[in-house]
Computed example of a mutant assay.
Amino acid sequence: MGTLKIAVQKSGRLSEKSLQLLSDCGIRLSNGERRLKAVSPNFPVEILFLRDDDIPQYVEEGVADAGILGQNEVWEKNKDVTEVKPLGFAGCRLSLAVPKDALYTGPDFFNNRKVATSYPVILQKYFDENNINAQIETISGSVEIAPAIGLADGIFDIVSTGSTLQINGLKEVEQVIKSEAVLIANKTLTPEKQEILDKLLFRIQSVRNAAENKYILLNAPNESVAEISRILPGMKSPTVLPLAEEGWSSIHSVIREDTFWDIIDKLKALGAEGILVTNVEKMIL
C-alpha cells in the first residue's frame, strides 16, 4: 500500500491540535523533532510540516495529498482543492473592527474608508456582496495597530476572545464568517490514496463521535425504566440490568454532552440515583 501525505501547520495551537487528533486516531509518528516531516510506523501516512498559508497550494499541486488547516486559509488562498471535513477545533471568527470611539452605523461605515487585513480575498468578497466601496490595505501582521498609526480606519482579522481588540482600542462591529480546522484533499487522488483517506476519515469520525457523547449509567426504580429509556435512547436502546435490590435496575446509555444538563432534572424526578457520566474514548456507529 502507498502512503498518504498530509500537510499540517508546523507550529502553533492548530498544529498541536492536529497532531493530537492523529494520535487520538491511533496514528503514531516516528519523528519527535518535526523539522520537516514525520512518518507513521502503524498507519500509511507521512506528515509534512508547512506554513499554514502554503498548505492549500501544496495540496492543489499534489505535493501533499491532504492537509489540516483553518478554513480561513482555505478560503483566502482559493485553491482548487476539496474541503473534505470540518474537524471541530480551532474555532474562530473573522470580523471587522473599528476604533472604540468611532460612530459605527452599519457596514456602510466602510464606504470610502481604508481597512487593513491579512485576508483581502475574503474581505473583498464581503464588500462586493454588500456593495461597499472600500480600500483594502493588505498587511501580513500586527493588523490591530493599523488604525492607531493612521494606516486604516478599521481592520478585518481573526477574533477568538476579543481581548486583543480591546487592548488595541478597537471594537468588533461585524462578524463576517466563522472558521474552524478542516481537512482538505487533492482533487485527483489515486484510488489507493483515496482508500487510505477514507480509513482516516472513519477514525476521525469515531473520535468526533466520542468527543460529542458521554457514557451514562444510573440506578432507577423499575416503574421508571420505560420513561428513562425514552429520554436516554442511546445508539439503539439503553442497556437495562437488574440490580440485587428487588424493584431496581441499572440503566446504561450514551448521551450527547450538550444535552445532558438539560435532562438531568428529568432523570432525578423519575427517581434516578447514582448517576455516573464518563468519557467515551472511541465510538463506532
Rank of each mutant, 00 (worst) to 15 (best):
K10L: 11
K17D: 05
L22G: 03
G26E: 11
R34I: 00
R34Q: 04
R35F: 06
N42P: 01
N42C: 08
V45D: 07
I47T: 05
L48T: 01
L50D: 02
D52R: 13
Y58F: 10
L69M: 13
V74T: 04
W75F: 06
K77V: 06
K79S: 11
D80I: 01
T82F: 04
C92W: 03
L94D: 15
P99Y: 13
D101A: 14
T105R: 03
F109C: 01
F110W: 02
K114C: 10
A116I: 06
A116N: 07
Y119M: 15
K125H: 09
F127I: 00
E129Y: 10
N133A: 06
T138H: 08
S140W: 08
G141E: 13
G154I: 03
D157L: 09
V159L: 00
S163A: 15
Q166W: 07
I167H: 05
N168R: 15
K171C: 04
E172L: 15
V176W: 05
A181Y: 09
A181V: 09
T188K: 14
D198R: 10
K199H: 12
L200D: 08
L201Y: 06
Q205E: 12
Q205D: 07
V207D: 01
N209C: 07
Y215V: 02
I228Y: 04
L232G: 11
S237C: 00
T239Y: 06
A244V: 12
W248S: 01
S253Y: 01
I255A: 06
E257Q: 08
D258R: 08
D265C: 11
D265I: 14
A272C: 03
G274C: 07
G274F: 14
V277D: 01
V277F: 03
M283H: 03
I284G: 06
